[in-house]
Design a protein around this nucleic acid. Structure first.
Length: 138
RNA sequence: GGAGUGGAUUGGGCGACCGCCGGCCACGCAUGCGUGGCGGGAGGAAAGUCCGGGCUCCACAGGGCUCGAUGGUGGGUAACUCCCACCGGCCGCGAGGCCAGGGACAGUGCCACAGAGAACAGACCGCCGGCGAGGCUCGUCCUCGCAGGUAAGGGUGAAACGGUGAGGUAAGAGCUCACCAGCAGGCCGGGUGACCGGUCUGGCUCGGCAAACCCCAUCGGGAGCAAGGCCAAGCAGGAGGAAAUCCGGUCGUUCGCGGCCGGAGCGGGGCGGCCCGUCCCGUUCGACCUCCGGGUAGGUCGCUGGAGGCGGCGGGCAACCGUCGUCCUAGAGAAAUGGUCGUCGCCCGCCGCUCGGCGGGCACAGAACCCGGCUUACAGAUCCGCUCCGAGC
RNA sequence: GCGGGUGUAGCUCAAUGGUAGAGCAAUAGCCUUCCAAGCUAAAGACGAGGGUUCGAUUCCCUUCACCCGCU
């Protein structure tokens, strides 16, 4: 049995190192909706799949609440990978002031994740800043 | 049956699909990777970090002062501010619960307000007799004043220098006596001991606070897995600062001196702080201190088999210990346990109001080197021991 | 992981173990034609739970929240 590649979520599809986070933040392209903020930047590999980095601060809650947010966001990202722009790195930040007590449901997060990602990428100037990097797959 | 008390266990079950972390095996690719298979993957508190250890490193850790911790006795333990048993005190009808529970004749200090008096106390009212003055109903009378006596009574307070009775007295008072309470000491008996029981003597009586300073006894080297080891990659140094040199041996010598070793002095650093002591380094271009600047943000080991869990037997009142058998049970690194469903269980709301249907919820909370405790949070469920009350047999 | 600090009135801060106080703010009144300023009055707090003590904001323990530092 061969699994569908888009359903998988291997470690290579994650942003893990400080340098990777810094590169996405340096691009300064973000959009927000409700409790989450999404940063986006073209990935280093122009044929690559979208990658995800997470930032959940201690102000969000205890370890259980923070881990819950990360797991639900990873699951939402995994389900949305086919609909997201390719070769793009994303960082999802959970905002402390607007976050409800627990994590939001995965389905709703998937919807807003896709719409925020498309909003950033379709903005004028994103492709120009990319400077010949991977183009938007739309 | 009701009320209560002490303890133990558990922390939703089963199934399907898709993911995630790491292990083993196989294959491909070439050492990073991918695919498939098999089995594993959060807790009783993983939490707070309040104690105690193991482990690792540090220039072995000594003495004095200081600092900090602990504080009934005996035991358990690797150790403890933990646990068990016992003693004492307080609370509860009781089962039980709580207690930092050594020393207040080693010293210092504090005890507000109230009250006359608050620590080897104190005469405000009262009581008592004496002296003086006044009054009249002339008395064993009343009123006022003065100097005294008196701690039995009133009142204050958290606390007022024993309680009851008798004697005694002007009135009183441990002033005296008996009993009781309490204190100190001796002796006898029991207990490993804290302590308990008995008896005799004493002066007749002594406040509380040491979670106030303190005294006594005991204990405490420091840091922490971001410890620490290895590999890879990378970089650039600069400025300032205190100080004091001398002696001996030996070798070389161009006879100026230089190298090495040892010692003294001086300077710096480590041993929680200070002093001694000790160790290391330096003593003229180098160590140390301060400031500025530069580089790294990777891998791997440590990393999970342990004071380990379960069961039997033996010892012990118990905590716990010994022995035998059996089991292997997470190891991440921006950090793995998630998502979508079905079904059953429990709870709540609505319709129904017998069956049933619909919707929602199922606690506290997430391993990060590992253990032993403590404390705190927690929807519920189950079991055991005991006490009190009521009813029945 | 290690270490330290702070919680007192709406805000900023005081206070030997004995009635918790100051400034600003807010309320009411006086003054003014009105406002401001000024004057007067009253209200308002020791983060929580235990313990020691006659008595605790203070001393001790536990706990909660926040802040800071080192690695």
């Amino acid at each position: 049995m061969v699994s569908v590649p888009e359903r998988r979520f291997p470690r290579a599809a994650r942003l893990l190192r400080p340098a990777e986070f810094a590169r996405v933040y340096a691009r300064k392209r973000s959009a927000a909706a409700g409790p989450i903020v999404v940063y986006a930047a073209p990935g280093p590999d122009r044929d690559g799949r979208p990658r995800l980095g997470l930032s959940v601060s201690r102000r969000i809650g205890g370890a259980v609440v923070r881990n819950r947010w990360k797991r639900v966001l990873r699951e939402a990202f995994r389900a949305a990978r086919g609909e997201l722009p390719a070769a793009t790195d994303f960082i999802v930040v959970v905002r402390s002031g607007l976050a409800p007590a627990g994590a939001a449901p995965a389905r709703a997060l998937r919807e807003s994740l896709v719409s925020l990602a498309r909003r950033i990428v379709s903005r004028p100037g994103y492709a120009a800043d990319a400077a010949g990097d991977g183009t938007v797959s739309r």
